[in-house]
Design a protein around this nucleic acid. Structure first.
Lengths: 204, 204
DNA sequence: GTAAAACGTTAACAAAAGATAAGAAAGAAA
DNA sequence: TTTCTTTCTTATCTTTTGTTAACGTTTTAC
């Protein structure tokens, strides 16, 4: 699929969001656009699969995804992403090696994607090369900050504290995502989360 | 301190390690060098302090550091770094905002550092600008991969499994670092780690 | 060299979490 | 609607972990 299949409205949203990292002028944007592709995922379809190389980065236009791992036959959710966020099994993408997690659509999801191959073309592109380096650096640095917060939450908060924090700052996740996914995301069983909820409601 | 105070041997080690990310030619290296500084930390001295901006990235020439957080008056270790590794409260450095963790020398430690201000100079430098962008991107991407592994270990492994994994792959940490630091790093109490060790030794 | 502090292990008890199973409620599909 | 999943809660029992404290050893500081 090439860029003409991406609805203009979605493309504009994407361009607006990118401004947080980098501003393209018209010429640059026209050079950039043809390297993008639209992908639609039905609910429960996968964007990345354990053992397979994740060869694209996606930007969620509509919908939501969860990252998860399989352990002893159990699915353990490790992350959620929603509209206007990037999605990728990033290490797999960067190193072009097999992913060690799954990424699955929680709802019907529309993404604007860029493949590894096209990313390499952009890095070599006369007009865009330097800007692509900078863009890549800023996106990577942004993700480092997210990861730093996430590791910190594991280190200094208990599952119950992480849940209470989610209630305060991420109500959308709690409303859009089945509770048993949230439980494994917090590092506990669904039964345990149910107990925490009972305690928390009684104290509120 | 300026670059002439960095021992030639240490500077060469640094240059060699950087080759994993980027190769400087002689001209570029001469332009790069003056932006580096040598820092020596006595055991238990801090490289970063909670609430203060961490204004440098360090490269450990000799020694080791631990990252830790304070919670309810308790120190919780979140990471260790050793020779030939980078050190920084990275989010604080990138955003120039107060750090939310401490970084402390576990032993007398020698570092080659670059300040935020000098990094900005390098990014604007005619000769080095593009190379610095690329360097920054590659370092950031490297750290993303490390963080991805780290988050994954929290998600899919128990503290005991993480300890067993450390025994197999990171014996150096176990030997150089006091055990109660390792316990909080694993997310458990020192008492609990002692029990795990007893179990593990008996099964080996 | 000696005193003080830091470190690791163990024990006993309390608190929390996991495992399993049963049942109710909400959604999806025929 | 009716049926079949999926999801969430609750109860019981077991296992694990945290807490506190004691003790011996090692390391550090004066």
């Amino acid at each position: 699929m090439s860029s003409y299949s991406i609805p203009a409205h979605d493309l504009n949203t994407f361009r607006e969001e990118l401004k947080a990292y980098f501003v393209f002028n018209e010429t640059e944007w026209e050079a950039f656009k043809p390297h993008l592709e639209m992908v639609n995922l039905k609910k429960k379809a996968h964007f990345a699969i354990n053992g397979k190389i994740c060869d694209a980065i996606g930007f969620i236009v509509r919908g939501a995804v969860r990252y998860y791992h399989l352990k002893d036959g159990m699915e353990i959710t490790s992350y959620f992403s929603f509209e206007n966020e990037f999605v990728s099994s990033y290490k797999s993408f960067l190193k072009q090696e097999p992913s060690n997690s799954y990424i699955q659509a929680l709802e019907d999801t529309a993404l604007i994607t860029i493949t590894y191959q096209n990313m390499q073309l952009l890095l070599k592109h006369d007009l865009l090369g330097h800007k692509t380096e900078r863009f890549g650096r800023l996106v990577a640095e942004h993700y480092i900050c997210c990861y730093e917060d996430r590791v910190q939450s594991f280190i200094i908060q208990s599952p119950e504290e992480r849940y209470i924090h989610m209630m305060k700052t991420e109500r959308e996740i709690l409303q859009r995502v089945p509770q048993h996914y949230i439980a494994t995301f917090l590092g506990i069983t669904p039964v345990s989360l149910s107990r925490i909820r009972k305690r928390t409601v009684l104290n509120a």
